[in-house]
Design a binder for these strands. Structure first.
Lengths: 147, 147
DNA sequence: CAACATCATTTGATTAGTCAAGTTAAAAAG
DNA sequence: CTTTTTAACTTGACTAATCAAATGATGTTG
């Protein structure tokens, strides 16, 4: 009874790495006074705005409830605005968020990238991306409710 | 100002995948009435017991405070026992945990593995593991406090 | 138009984690 | 021996999420 099929070793590596790099990213983003989760959500809003909470929840792989709470925080901080629009609430960034992102985005993207660029060459990065894309896409397919 | 250096695409994939597979794993482990985080901690205890909270915290990449709270929950559920031993608290599994793990471990490891085995061949899995190991190890080196 | 159905969002209870300040137990110093 | 130091652990205040039950907003129907 050992802890080591190849797959389970990969799983553990991925979990530990994302966990750790997430913490480092939180640390990095302190200079912009935001967290990794918040940055992620703001980025998605920036790309797709205006959009509804349901749509946003789906983009960041979070539940309805999760996105609701997150948006309350972001609204309180003055990063976003929501307005009731039919049954739906439509979300968009404030100028404050836009201007912070203009600064934070290139730095954060460079920070994220550095984890890979500093150790892997272009070729290896492409391989990693391709493999993870396949794995991810497959896991999404699986998620379909069993009939 | 686009969202796509190769590195940042990899980062996003990893985050989304681990996030999602973690949720699926939580779902899977419901049958054993535990969560992925709990399973992970119990496994580490099982391998290294008896050990201290500090050692355990380091193994699962969590803070002192985090492990303290987690162990309170696990103790309340009757999965572990802690006893004060010198300044330190020594952690070990109860029979209850041992016997649940005996059942849950092979199933959970198979579940984790399936994410990779079902889409990647042996060769590709090895490549993925090697690349992620390099990336992870490098990120740990970086973590050293700046002098 | 009041009652119902429906879809989007919120909320209460809980797990999981962070940081930083507070305890506690044992050792070293006075 | 009491006092101070130190290492290990806990705790308060908080972010982030989950699930499932409750609200809100808008249509539809008797």
């Amino acid at each position: 009874m050992r802890n080591n099929t190849l797959g389970s070793l990969i799983w553990l590596r991925l979990m530990r790495f994302t966990n750790q790099s997430n913490q480092m990213s939180n640390d990095f983003l302190k200079r912009f006074d935001m967290t990794t989760a918040q940055f992620d959500v703001l980025m998605q809003i920036r790309i797709y705005q205006p959009l509804t909470q349901m749509e946003l929840a789906e983009k960041v792989t979070v539940t309805q409830g999760g996105i609701s709470r997150m948006l309350v925080r972001l609204e309180k901080e003055g990063y976003i605005v929501r307005k009731q629009d039919w049954k739906t609430k439509t979300i968009s960034l404030t100028d404050k968020a836009e201007s912070i992102l203009k600064q934070a985005m290139p730095e954060q993207l460079a920070f994220q990238s550095s984890f890979f660029e500093d150790v892997l060459n272009e070729e290896e990065q492409k391989t990693l991306y391709t493999l993870m894309t396949r794995v991810h896409k497959y896991s999404q397919k699986r998620e379909l409710p069993p009939e």
